[in-house]
Design a binder for these strands. Structure first.
Lengths: 263, 263
DNA sequence: ACCTGAACACCGTTCAAGT
DNA sequence: ACCTGAACACCGTTCAAGT
């Protein structure tokens, strides 16, 4: 949907992963020397998105990076949205081996809590490393192979909690929608700092000063200051780290309490 | 940042709420009959965003809706991003009176759990009613008056949980990042259904069929089907409702468990 | 004080044409 | 089979000019 505005007349296939023509290009086999193929395009897209951010990303800039005309890219992908969807699933592949996380069929020595922490930490890392992931993940259908593998791993772990089936989707939401939200603001914050050419700590200081300076709010500010100072951690990074892990433990405790209630 | 790509040369003020020129226009006082003012522009923007979605929203289309040339709007707002930020805070004003939620200074007869549910439900409602809110809320600094009022209400309620100060920001994250993530996908799902000209249930059926049809995943699918069917609720709306409230109770239980551990 | 028209530097995408 | 150039219908924003 990100760029769908100009593609009004297109049949609007819901995802690249459905009915894709998939000219995946077997790496520079024939005539011209451009050496383009789908994988090269996708990884150049990821690089450009990381470097410039989603709003600055355009097919023309990407093509320039590949030393090719903008329209060459269209031989490999149907639309900009398709390409973004491919890039999205590509970075989901950076999460380390969710397939390695076993379900309750196998006997697993590992605690489901640790498995859940591992998945949450990985998902957060992707969101923070690639701030453009959040708006895309919120927009597309997310049925690429890497994301599916991840979400099946999540399902397997949640099954081991002992929650009744009817509450498992809710538990998945409680954990991973939280991670999504947290990673979104964290990644965006880091991106903003970088683009302002300033450290996260400096940017935080400026933002706080900015909020303080805003009118109409001084009367509700005393407690906010207290809450901020008590937050713990000397740097913004440490703050994020502590908040994330404490919040994650809160949600895990909530699942445990829910299980205990049912048993 | 949404439209910032073309405004590279601008000083890049971090938010409308800082150093805004604020020509708020006292409602059609002088010469020309266009009757434009900031409030009219903002509410037209909200209407257009609701009707067409964020990607289709443009200054030129908005101006057309107002029977005015695109550039007239620029007399009232500096940039498209500023206008979006104003529209964003405007819809946060739809949450009913978070200012009415007391802190622990006043003795309040109401349980903090109910207050938290109320705030979460309101926030979710905004995200679902206005699917364009999520990407903007994830992008801007969120220091408009309505959002600040909301987040101060959140702080007051969390203070009443009995959590130590050092864990209160984490608890806020656990609740409201979850709500943000949940409202994001829910709102987007409803938007997609509407734009496909189909009910949410029909769209859900199609999406499920689509995922099933995807290759490489049939081997992990049996449990997913089980989890989906056990989810409860006959319609998609009921499913969302149940998942949301169950997940919210999980997080609240987690906060309670955390409080008990400390006491 | 408010509004407009023309212009600039961009977009995504189509299409006919090249090799 | 792959790539290009020109063109279409858009963007956000600036600037000089109108009333």
């Amino acid at each position: 949907m990100v760029a769908a505005e100009r593609a009004k007349r297109r049949p609007a296939r819901a995802s690249v992963w459905l009915e894709d023509k998939a000219r995946r290009g077997g790496a520079a086999r024939g005539g011209q020397p451009s050496g383009l193929d789908r994988d090269r395009i996708i990884s150049a897209a990821v690089t450009l998105l990381d470097a410039e951010g989603l709003p600055r990303f355009s097919m023309r800039r990407l093509a320039a990076e590949l030393n090719v005309t903008a329209m060459s890219v269209y031989w490999y992908v149907d639309t900009k949205d398709d390409l973004l969807e491919l890039a999205l699933d590509a970075v989901f592949g950076e999460m380390r081996a969710p397939a390695g996380i076993p379900g309750d069929d196998e006997e697993s020595p590992e605690d489901w809590r640790d498995q859940l922490r591992e998945l949450a930490v990985d998902y957060r890392a992707v969101l923070v490393r690639h701030p453009w992931v959040s708006p895309l993940a919120g927009t597309f259908l997310n049925i690429g192979p890497n994301y599916l593998e991840f979400s099946f791993a999540v399902q397997r772990v949640i099954r081991r909690t002992g929650l009744p089936l009817s509450e498992q989707t809710a538990a998945i939401s409680a954990v991973f929608q939280f991670v999504y939200g947290f990673g979104t603001i964290e990644g965006h914050f880091i991106e903003r700092s970088a683009m302002a050419g300033v450290t996260a700590d400096e940017y935080f200081g400026e933002a706080m000063a900015a909020v303080m300076q805003a009118p109409q709010i001084s009367h509700v500010l005393e407690h906010s200051k207290g809450i901020m100072e008590a937050r713990g951690g000397d740097t913004v990074t440490e703050m994020f780290e502590r908040d994330f892990s404490t919040a994650l433990e809160i949600v895990i405790s909530g699942i445990e309490a829910r299980v205990a209630r049912v048993e």
